[in-house]
Design a protein around this nucleic acid. Structure first.
Length: 213
DNA sequence: GACGTGTTGAGTCTTACGTCA
DNA sequence: TGTGACGTAAGACTCAACACG
């Protein structure tokens, strides 16, 4: 089902602003950050023994986040060398870089999924509306079918037999067919139908189009 | 200042895949 | 060649610290 726009790049190109930048105006100052990073580099085993003080949450600096984002735009996964180099550059542990990328991938995917969900919801709404319109149209056409014929025979000036609505199985166009007396004369051998007018091709036959979203 | 909520770094478990005996 | 054990990487799920309104 060709539902989505080309997603080859969508998830990759999905630029998610880093909310931390705007929502955390009171980032640690540089000296705090230095202490931060030092702590980050040193407490490598702290988390395992559980006896020490509760681990403080690392907050990346703007520059660290910027570099990580930049790197993420280039590739969503890192090989060990890249990880090591980036960690060195950022003065972080490779594990922290790795975790950052893991979370970044997960949250990109989440964002992408949410966007696709929204897209499908809107499309569903559009299709529902289109379905309603078509149902109405079918009702109208059915009403026309029961009504008296309005076509008079050019020969006798008498009303022609009731026209019939049929659905062409191949092109799914509603066709109004009227069997004329001439037809009947000719049809002694078997029934044929003359397509004298067809419903606008843009109505029932219109292809279901994806919404322009 | 307490509280609810969103963000985000990190831990743990699961799964898929490759390698090797 | 098929198979089970093992290691590894990535994802899924979750928690907790923190910022903000």
């Amino acid at each position: 089902m060709a539902v989505f726009p080309p997603t080859g790049s969508s998830s990759l190109e999905l630029t998610i602003s880093v909310p931390g930048f705007s929502s955390y105006p009171s980032l640690p100052n540089s000296s705090d950050q230095e202490e931060w990073m030092t702590a980050g580099m040193e407490d490598e085993e702290d988390s395992s023994n559980g006896s020490g003080p509760p681990r403080k949450k690392l907050r990346l600096t703007k520059e660290q986040s910027r570099l990580l984002e930049e790197s993420f735009r280039q590739h969503h996964t890192l090989n060990p060398k890249q990880k090591e180099a980036l960690a060195m550059q950022l003065k972080l542990r490779p594990r922290q870089v790795e975790v950052w990328f893991q979370n970044r991938r997960a949250r990109s995917k989440l964002k992408q999924t949410e966007m696709e969900c929204e897209y499908l919801k809107r499309w569903f709404g559009s299709l529902t509306e289109q379905n309603r319109r078509l149902q109405r149209e079918v009702e109208e056409l059915r009403a026309m079918k029961v009504g008296p014929p309005t076509v008079l025979s050019p020969h006798s000036c008498e009303p022609l037999p009731a026209s019939t609505l049929t659905m062409c199985p191949r092109c799914e166009r509603v066709t109004t067919t009227t069997t004329t007396t001439l037809d009947r004369d000719r049809d002694r051998g078997g029934p044929t139908k003359t397509n004298i007018s067809s419903a606008p091709a843009t109505t029932l036959s219109s292809k279901v189009a994806t919404p322009a979203l």
